Simulated assay, not measured.
Amino acid sequence: MAMSLGPSGGSGRRGRSRAPIAEINVTPFVDVMLVLLIIFMVTAPLLVAGVPIDLPDSRASALEQEKEPVQISLDADGQPFVDDAQVSMADLPAALEAIRTERGDDNGDAPQVMLRADRSLDYGKVMLVMGELNRAGLNRVSLVTTGSSERL
């Protein structure tokens, strides 16, 4: 006695069709989101920096900021910039004093300063600017680097 199970598989549900699957395929959505994430990760650093500087690498994590920090940059020639505006070394102390008085908190706290210096620049030039920052009372200084996974 041979029996044929037929297309229904022997389940006893002859003549009924399967119900449609009501699921959303999220794979294309995830692919698009990953591409957008990569685009933003590549373009975001280009939008921040106004002075072209080859920053050194570091494994340190980024700091959280509540206010917009002051950007002090030193290009490859050692020329200082305050928020994308070029300043001569002779005028730097006066510019830093103006920043201290204009952007300081109500409590008298100094604003956050982000110091960016080109990696090919002499260490003495960077220390000269850091000394001027300290003399002006701008003691909250962060050194900006690019992220790196290299180990010593």
Rank of each mutant, 00 (worst) to 15 (best):
D31P: 00
P93A: 11
P28E: 01
V51L: 04
F40L: 11
K125F: 14
D83V: 06
R140H: 11
G9R: 15
A44P: 00
A22E: 10
D83C: 07
L128I: 06
S88E: 12
G78E: 03
S148K: 09
R59V: 02
A62I: 03
S11V: 06
G137L: 01
F81N: 09
A44G: 02
I38H: 02
M130W: 03
V26R: 12
E132Q: 14
K125V: 15
A49W: 00
S142W: 05
E64A: 10
G124H: 03
V129D: 13
M3N: 09
M89Y: 06
S61R: 04
L37K: 03
A76V: 08
R16P: 00
M33G: 13
G15M: 09
D83E: 11
A95R: 15
R119I: 12
D57E: 15
R151N: 09
A110K: 00
L121R: 10
G131M: 03
G131A: 11
M130D: 14
E66S: 10
V129Y: 13
G50Y: 01
P111F: 13
L143P: 07
V30G: 04
G10L: 06
L128E: 12
G6Y: 02
D122H: 12
V51G: 10
L46C: 07
N107K: 12
R119Y: 07
S120Q: 08
S58I: 05
F29W: 10
D83T: 13
I53V: 15
V126Q: 11
Q86K: 12
A90M: 00
L92T: 06
L121C: 11
I24L: 15
R119C: 06
G50D: 14
I39K: 05
I53S: 14
I99Q: 08
P111K: 06
L115S: 06
L121K: 03
R100I: 03
Q79Y: 02
E68Q: 15
I38S: 15
G50V: 10
L121A: 12
G104M: 12
S120C: 01
S4P: 03
V129L: 13
R13I: 00
L47P: 00
A85M: 04
V82K: 03
L63S: 11
N107D: 13
T101V: 14
D84E: 12
G147K: 14
I24K: 08
